[in-house]
Design a protein around this nucleic acid. Structure first.
Lengths: 338, 338
DNA sequence: GCGTGGCGGGAAAGCGCTTTCCAGCGCTGC
DNA sequence: GCAGCGCTGGAAAGCGCTTTCCCGCCACGC
């Protein structure tokens, strides 16, 4: 057993060249190697089944081929779509994706960045939404600094006051456009299932929505906070029903929450859209199969992942770059005229 | 810029001890170190913000803290659930998950194992279903052998004739039990949307289902092959409708395919379950929010991921272990009496 | 004819860590 | 009182690779 891994030294010896030459042939350096030797090395490497030891390369080059991807929950379609985009780009670039999940715990995010730093990752994509928690934010920023100091690159998806490259979805504008579209359907009284108030994403979408209502001269919405998950949406919807609000239309700040909310409405016999219209945000792929089809603000999630990966792999300047991605209002069957 | 990483040597020097001692303190070796020195080292490390270089450790120890996870498509809830299970266990064990996606291409799977081997991953979890393609299978087996020779461990989720540890869902038994449950509802004529015929998972579920029908004395089903995706289910359902089959109940071998099929039925005005009953397999979480709720065979997906990770991280014997996971028939609103 | 460059090849010095091996020391046991 | 043991600390040899530096060779140009 344990037929130890073939090393470069073995290949070199077998091919009758020096270690240096073998290395140059097998890993394209700037230096040229004569065709004869090059062929010989290539052939022996092939023959021996040589696979370079990535750790040794990482150590010698002081940089690895790892790209970190940090998400809250990989089963959430929002994150899995972004993950798909990131992995596609990374794999095309010959890099390897390290997946870390935080379970929405800010400390865990810091830990993950630190681990990735220990592994000398090339780059990190942070896909979770930032919070307004100052101390968590500060520790994360410190860890990110340490990482960039060391030559790593970082990009965030969604708002991030971290001075890194960022892919920013049009949360505010999307919320605003959605509000206008819904008022145009004739709705006057709204409720918002707003997620936790300390999440930037949630805040921005809410703020945009409020602004849109104001534009249209509608009354401010009833705002119900809750967890940023399906079950959070479910609970928030129950709360809404219990509140005796006279809202005719409810906006859940994520599709996932909207799904939960629809389940709650269904259970309570509230018909969508006849009794209540509902809209979400993100346009996750699973929406294709909900009934009634959910109105939402479409974000190109996979593409956002690709863009983030692109930013983080591109050498780029030292300026933090920001790519804005617009959301597009998509009205479907879950929102009716009022 | 680039305030180079703090090294062990720096910590050792600063603390006035030898490299060896510092290493022993900071990475728990078998050797003891006096409390005084130990304290001093710990303090300086803390103070300097020392983070061990994982590549160097991997090189010196000839083993890394990487665990590979190979899936076909991370946006598929089936895989993302398994991924969640695997990452949870891996992270608890202080390991780091490397995510590779194959896009269902067998060559890519081989590449990924090879990459993981280059990185001296501790272990690999292969979550995609195996195919009956002989040559692809052989190359994969060779790569896996190389990896295990080198001390790595491999586990597969779902059927795998690869001689590795395996988590085997009760595909056959589940299909059979489902068939029986459906015949008990009074259905006599069935169709199966069976996925590609070369996939073991698809074949086993189909075979079990057929056996169950036979048990109940029902006629063999109409079998329609297609892609193993939502759109494959959609297409297959259209084909079914075009076929003028008189089936009253259709079994899609995965929930994801069933979702596509339901969409097709809905579009064509076929009511579920009044005009047609439908059942899937897996019980992916997104089913919670489909209407009508889909009958299915529940598999504990996250748990399967956890088990696979457990197998692969546990030293274990040299015997290939197999853990069977039973599926449980769950009848919901999508299947009616006939 | 010989100095000058340029170019391909190899020796060897690391990269940051683990681990073996040895030295020194305080004990025990005869 | 001393051999022998167990224990802790340190020196140093790698782990497999990259890369610098040097050397020898050839083609030129004066």
């Amino acid at each position: 057993m344990s037929a130890r891994q073939v090393t470069l030294a073995e290949v070199a010896k077998q091919a009758g060249v020096s270690l240096a030459t073998a290395s140059r042939v097998l890993n394209g350096s700037t230096r040229q190697v004569s065709e004869e030797l090059s062929d010989r090395v290539l052939r022996t490497a092939e023959q021996l089944g040589y696979v370079p030891n990535a750790s040794a390369q990482a150590l010698a080059r002081n940089s690895s081929s790892l790209v970190g991807l940090v998400v809250h929950d990989i089963t959430d379609p929002y994150f899995s779509c972004i993950a798909a985009g990131v992995t596609r780009v990374a794999e095309e670039a010959g890099l390897v994706v390290v997946l870390g999940t935080t379970g929405r715990r800010p400390e865990r995010e810091v830990e993950l960045v630190s681990t990735l730093r220990a592994h000398r990752a090339r780059a990190i994509v942070l896909a979770g939404s930032r919070t307004t928690d100052r101390t968590a934010q500060a520790r994360l920023a410190a860890e990110i600094d340490a990482f960039t100091e060391q030559g790593g690159r970082v990009a965030c998806v969604s708002q991030a006051k971290l001075g890194t490259d960022t892919v920013v979805p049009g949360n505010r504008a999307g919320g605003r456009a959605l509000a206008r579209a819904l008022t145009e359907l004739g709705h006057k009284r709204f409720a918002v299932l707003a997620g936790p108030s300390e999440l930037f994403v949630a805040r921005d979408r809410l703020a945009g929505f409020k602004a849109g209502l104001a534009d249209a001269g509608a009354a401010p919405p009833l705002v119900i906070n809750g967890a940023f998950t399906r079950d959070g949406g479910y609970e928030a919807a129950l709360e809404l029903l219990a509140s005796k609000s006279r809202a005719t239309c409810v906006f859940a700040v994520t599709d996932v929450m909207a799904m939960g909310a629809m389940a709650a409405l269904r259970e309570r016999g509230v018909r969508v859209p006849e009794d209540m219209s509902i809209a979400g945000f993100d346009d996750i792929p699973t929406l294709r199969d909900t009934v009634p089809a959910l109105s939402t603000v479409r974000l190109p999630l996979e593409e956002m992942g690709e863009i983030a990966a692109g930013l983080v792999l591109d050498p780029g300047g030292d300026e933090a770059r920001t790519v804005r991605v617009a959301g597009e209002v998509v009205l479907r069957a879950s929102t009716a005229h009022n």
